[in-house]
Amino acid sequence: MGTRLPTLATRGRRAMRGLTLIEFMIAIVLGMILVAAIATLIANQSANRAELDRAGKMLENGRYAVQTMAEDLMMAGYWGELSAAPGTATAMPDPCSTTIAGAGNLQEGTALHVQGYNAPVTLPTNLAVCVKNHKPGTDILVVRHVDPDTSAVEKTSGCTAPYSPCVDWSKLKVGQVYLQTGLNSSGTALGWALATADGSTDSTTFAKVRKDKTTGATPRKLVVHIYYIAKCSVEVSNSCTDGDNGNPIPTLKRVDLGVTSNAPAMQSPITIAEGIENMQFDFNRYTDTDKPAAADVDGSALTFANWADVKSMKIYLVARGTEKAPGFTDTKTYVMGTAGAASAPSGDEGYRRHLFIQSIRLINPSGRGT
């Protein structure tokens, strides 16, 4: 009897029987390898994006910090129409003072358009009044001028032509210190008045006038800014020990002269930029022949008698990331002018850093040659 050939139905059943166990296991392994590869790719892309975000934030904070100070320094020594500061220093000014007259107070302070403190480890007693949680070893800078924008105290209606806008005495802020520059009532001499607005006698306290000898000259707000690096961004009970959720972030802050309870007062520090770890300033004095000195100085040897000679300066600023970069160790050194080289503090080598250097000409005092 011959061999029985498989029927059509039998051949169909064999062709439709599907994958074997080995084929199924191979497919699973290949799928897992593919999924693992995709997951690794996504994880790497996520890590790279996070690192780019950290680096971008660090650079943005550093640039903003330098730009903020540079723009303020370009206004340093601006006193309206005056060609010289309204005060003459007889002592080193107290940056935290809110008293107008007297040695070392606001009026005399105008003689120093900039004033620096070279890397103090412990703050001077007077400066510690308004500067809180300063990071030891970093510089402090004081900038003084008047506000060029007077729109907050002016009006456009009821002004004498062509002096529009003109001062609106009701808009002066009680307790704010203003500098008014203008002519005396007879129009024979240019003068100034530095006083605190009281809301009732301001039009007589600030009696300087414009060229028509009648229209009151507009007072300008006196600006005193103190820049420094704080040990943290957000304090806890006025301390940085537990600040920033236990991971203190060095932060550039600024203290401003303002008003509290209708009286002049240095305000609470405001944050300029987080992640600013080190800041040093170098200054250059111009000689009697109006030439720059041969070398920059750190300001430690300058006195109340020669700070006014400073016409240009340099900012050296190290910005660091607010978060550590996984697998990164900072072994660089950063040249900080006369302060020498700086490197990552012990234990903080895991943060990326960038050095910013900015040269600034102090336009107002250098333009006047005074």
Rank of each mutant, 00 (worst) to 15 (best):
T68R: 11
A70N: 10
A70L: 07
D72E: 14
L73D: 12
M75W: 07
M75N: 14
G77S: 06
E81D: 15
E81L: 09
S83P: 00
S83H: 10
A85N: 03
G87I: 12
G87M: 05
G87S: 12
T88C: 01
T88N: 14
A89G: 13
T90V: 10
T90L: 04
A91L: 12
A91V: 10
P93F: 01
P93C: 04
C96R: 02
C96T: 08
C96Y: 02
S97C: 05
S97F: 02
T98N: 13
A101Y: 06
A101G: 11
A101C: 03
A101V: 09
A103Y: 01
A103N: 13
G104Q: 07
N105G: 07
E108T: 10
G109E: 08
G109Y: 00
T110D: 14
A111W: 06
A111C: 08
L112V: 01
H113F: 09
V114R: 01
Q115S: 06
Q115L: 14
A119V: 03
P120D: 12
P120Y: 05
V121R: 03
T122S: 15
T122K: 07
P124H: 11
T125R: 07
T125H: 01
N126W: 00
L127Q: 11
L127H: 07
A128M: 06
V129M: 05
V129T: 15
C130A: 08
N133C: 02
P136K: 02
G137F: 02
T138G: 05
D139C: 05
I140D: 13
I140T: 11
R144D: 14
R144V: 10
R144G: 13
H145K: 04
V146S: 10
D147S: 15
P148H: 09
P148L: 07
P148V: 09
D149A: 05
D149F: 00
T150G: 05
S151M: 00
E154I: 00
K155L: 09
K155D: 12
T156W: 04
G158T: 05
G158Q: 04
C159P: 08
A161K: 06
A161Y: 06
A161I: 09
Y163E: 14
P165W: 03
V167F: 03
D168Q: 08
D168C: 04
W169K: 08
L172V: 08
G175F: 02
Q176I: 05
Y178A: 12
L179T: 11
L179Y: 08
Q180A: 13
T181G: 11
G182Y: 01
L183R: 08
S185Y: 00
S186Q: 12
G187V: 00
G187R: 00
T188C: 09
T188E: 13
A189C: 05
G191I: 07
G191N: 10
G191S: 15
W192T: 15
A193L: 02
A193G: 00
A195Y: 00
T196Q: 14
A197M: 07
D198V: 05
G199V: 06
G199A: 07
G199K: 00
D202W: 01
D202A: 04
D202G: 06
T204S: 15
T204E: 12
F206C: 09
A207D: 15
A207V: 02
K208V: 05
K211H: 10
